[in-house]
C-alpha cells in the first residue's frame, strides 16, 4: 500500500511538472508595429530599439513593422501573426482597437498602450507608460532656468501618457517657483506629424512670453525645435526646448535644454518573461526614476549647480519624500493647468 501511495505521489508530481511546462508559452518571435519610422529620436525609435534589445537579451527574434501611419493596421497584424509572432506589440494608441481584435481572432497575445483597463489574462497587456516623475524634474529645471517667468507646454495630442507628463511638468514648475506662468497649447487632434503646426503653435506660445518650451509631439516636435531655433524670446535671448522620450542631442544646435528620457527595455523584458511564465496580461507595466527607466537628460546648457539641485530633487522623488501622482485625464490636466495659472 505504501509503495502504491509513493508511486501515485511520484506520478502526480510528474504530472504537475509536465502540466506547468506545457502551460508555459514558448516565445520564439515577437513583433512591434510603429506608426512612424524608428528614427524619430522619440516614441517610435525608443520602442523599436527597446524591442530589439529585449529580444536579443531573451534570444527571441524581433519583427519590426514601422512607418505604418495611423490608419488601419489589421492587415499588418495578420501578416506578422502569420510570420509566427508570439506577441504583437501595437506601439500606438491608434492601434488599440485593431490589435486586441486581431489578437483574439488569431489567438496571439497583444500589447497595447493607453488602455490600462483593457488587460486580459493571457491575451491583452497594456503598457501605458508615463515619465511623470522625470517631467516633474523637467518642470523644476524649467522654472529654475526661465528668465521671463513663463514656460510653455506644447503637445500634439492628449494621450494619457502625455497628459501625465504635462501635469507633472506644470506641478514641478510651480513647486520650484510659485509665481511662474504656465502656457499650455495643443496643436491639433492627433497632430503627431504636423511639424508646421508644431512650429506655428510654439511661435505663438513664445510670443506670449515663454522662454522654455516643454514639447511632446513625435514628428511635430521637430517643428517645435525649429521654432525655438528661429524665434527669439521676449528679452531677445535664446528660447530652450525640453523634449520627451528620446534624445535629440545628435541634431541639437544648442537649444535643447533637456529631455525626459524613457527606457522601454525593462518593460519589454518583463512582457516576454510574463509571456513565458503565463502571467501575461495580469498587470500594468510602469517606468520610473528609481530604476533609471526614466531619466532627465543632462546637456551642456544646464549649469552644474542647477543640475546638482535637480539631482537632489530626484533623490527626494525616489525616496518618496516628494510624491508625484500621474494625471492621465485631459479634463483633469486642464483643471490643473488653469488652477496653477
Amino acid at each position: 500500500m505504501r509503495a502504491y501511495w509513493k508511486k501515485s505521489l511520484g506520478a502526480l508530481t510528474m504530472l504537475a511538472l509536465m502540466s506547468t511546462a506545457s502551460l508555459a508559452a514558448e516565445v520564439k518571435t515577437i513583433a512591434i508595429l510603429a506608426p512612424e519610422q524608428g528614427n524619430d529620436y522619440g516614441w517610435n525609435q525608443q520602442g523599436i530599439d527597446a524591442a530589439k534589445a529585449a529580444g536579443e537579451k531573451a534570444g527571441v527574434k524581433v519583427l519590426v513593422a514601422e512607418g505604418l501611419g495611423y490608419g488601419d493596421v489589421r492587415p499588418t497584424l495578420r501578416e506578422l501573426a502569420g510570420e509566427g509572432a508570439n506577441l504583437l506589440i501595437a506601439h500606438a494608441s491608434g492601434y488599440n482597437t485593431a490589435a486586441p481584435e486581431i489578437g483574439a481572432e488569431l489567438n496571439v497575445p497583444v500589447a497595447i498602450v493607453d488602455m490600462p483597463n483593457a488587460i486580459k489574462a493571457g491575451k491583452v497587456a497594456d503598457y501605458t507608460l508615463s515619465g511623470h516623475e522625470g517631467a516633474y524634474l523637467a518642470g523644476r529645471l524649467a522654472a529654475k532656468m526661465s528668465r521671463s517667468g513663463s514656460v510653455g507646454i506644447v503637445v500634439s495630442g492628449e494621450p494619457p501618457s502625455w497628459n501625465s507628463q504635462s501635469a507633472a511638468f506644470a506641478q514641478g514648475a510651480k513647486a520650484e517657483k510659485d509665481g511662474i506662468k504656465i502656457l499650455y497649447a495643443v496643436i491639433g487632434p492627433a497632430a503627431y506629424a504636423d511639424a508646421a503646426g508644431g512650429k506655428r503653435v510654439t511661435e505663438a506660445v513664445i510670443a506670449a512670453g515663454a522662454d522654455i518650451i516643454f514639447g511632446q509631439g513625435n514628428g511635430s516636435s521637430f517643428g517645435m525645435l525649429q521654432a525655438v531655433e528661429t524665434t527669439k524670446a521676449g528679452d531677445g535671448g535664446k528660447v530652450y526646448f525640453i523634449d520627451v522620450i528620446g534624445d535629440k542631442s545628435p541634431i541639437n544646435k544648442g537649444f535643447l535644454l533637456s529631455s525626459v528620457l524613457w527606457n522601454l527595455v525593462p518593460v519589454y523584458d518583463a512582457m516576454i518573461a510574463d509571456l513565458k511564465a503565463d502571467k501575461f496580461g495580469t498587470k500594468n507595466y510602469t517606468i520610473g526614476l528609481a530604476d533609471d527607466s526614466v531619466k532627465l537628460l543632462k546637456t551642456a546648457e544646464i549649469p552644474d549647480g542647477v543640475w546638482g539641485e535637480i539631482e537632489a530633487v530626484r533623490a527626494d522623488v525616489v525616496s518618496g519624500k516628494i510624491k508625484v501622482e500621474p494625471v492621465w485625464d485631459a479634463a483633469k490636466l486642464h483643471e490643473l493647468v488653469t488652477a496653477l495659472k
Partner: peptide, 16 residues
C-alpha cells in the same frame, strides 16, 4: 510652402 515656410523641415506625413 508647408515644408519650407510652415515648418522649415520635412517629416513624413507632415501634410497631416
Amino acid at each position: 510652402f508647408l515644408s519650407e515656410v510652415g515648418a522649415g523641415l520635412f517629416v513624413p506625413f507632415m501634410t497631416n
